[in-house]
Simulated scan of single mutants.
Amino acid sequence: MDQITAGLTPAAVWTGSGIEMWDIEIPALESGDLLVRVDLATVCGSDLHTVSGRRHGACPSVLGHEAVGHVVAVGDATSPAAVGDRIVWSVTVPCGRCSRCVRGFTAKCSSVRKVGHESAESPWVLSGSYARHIVLPRGTAVARVPDTMPDAVAAPAACATATVTAALDAAGALDGRRVLIVGAGMLGVTAAAAACERGASVTVVDRDPERQRQSRAFGAGEDDGARTDVTIDFSGSSAAVQSALGRLDVGGRLVLAGSVAPGPPITVDPEAVVRNWLTITGIHNYEPRHLHQAVAFLRNTDAKYPWESLVEAPVPLAELASVLRPTPSGILRSSVAP
């Protein structure tokens, strides 16, 4: 590692009661590792859940897993990128050897580690994106990002856009299908645009009328309450999921992506599932191919949809605490520029 990248780097650390600024020593890189300078990190809803107490996470820790940056040092020639590359990176770091990884479910690796979810007192201290630098260990999927893509467009690819891509894969072929998106947050509006690009007729529902109106700029039409072929839920609301299940037409498919915290159970009528050939499935995290597909999707639609408008102007790293809160209508992601 060269003299420029050696030494200390500032990080905003979640302590369980607030954010503290720490100077953390940059470790020596191991084989296959990358050291990345974080250019912009966006604030995902899961981080808001952590600081609000809705989600348990390691503590103290450097949060943040949705970001874009430049590689400033590599462990060796086996590293997946070169110095100077502009990249986004996956949330999950799998072992690549367990039965789940072998079956293609690396996102649910038996010993998975996750960017922005590890203890700051563990060997992987620089694991989150709310720091000037992050270490990406061997096994982290990375995707190169075009220089022409704004940071505010690229950063969400690492979580929101890639997760949407996984959800649409689970939904199956969408050309000519009626698709209902439940929840018009960052994932919902992204899914609306992505489903439209796959030839679907898309509607979006959200309890926030402003967010529902905003989805129109991403290809969504007015919801008329009619039957649907595919419903994708990003809301995590049991009531919304129950309602969406009741709207599926024969052969319909329900994809659950937002139910990532405990909630009331829903009622499923087995006879209705059988007689109507219904499919209910779920996705959590995503596979490396989805990260690459997410970058390609954003690159191909950068002139068609107002992606950059969804992200609030960044605050400095030292002001991270000020944006760890729900964003106002119209802004779906806060951001930090370390």
Results as ranks from 00 to 15, higher is better:
M1H: 15
T5A: 13
T9K: 11
T15Y: 07
G18D: 08
W22Q: 12
I24D: 10
A28C: 04
S31P: 04
G32Q: 06
L35K: 08
D39W: 00
L40Q: 12
S46N: 01
S46G: 05
L48P: 10
L48F: 08
H49A: 13
G53Y: 06
R54D: 06
A58L: 05
S61R: 01
G64K: 04
V68H: 05
V68K: 06
A73V: 06
A82Q: 14
V83S: 03
V91A: 07
V93E: 05
P94F: 07
T106I: 13
A107W: 00
G128S: 12
S129K: 04
P156T: 03
A158G: 12
T163W: 02
T165L: 07
D169C: 03
D175I: 06
V179D: 01
L180Q: 12
V182T: 15
G183I: 05
A192Q: 08
A192R: 08
G199P: 11
S201Y: 14
P209Y: 06
S215K: 05
T231W: 02
F234E: 05
F234G: 07
A244D: 08
G246P: 01
L248W: 04
D249A: 15
D249Y: 07
L254S: 07
S259E: 05
S259M: 11
G263P: 00
T267I: 09
L278P: 02
G282S: 15
I283H: 03
H292T: 12
A294C: 07
L298Y: 01
N300H: 05
K304N: 04
P306H: 13
W307T: 00
V311D: 03
P316A: 15
L324D: 09
L332I: 04
S335V: 02
S335P: 08
V336G: 12
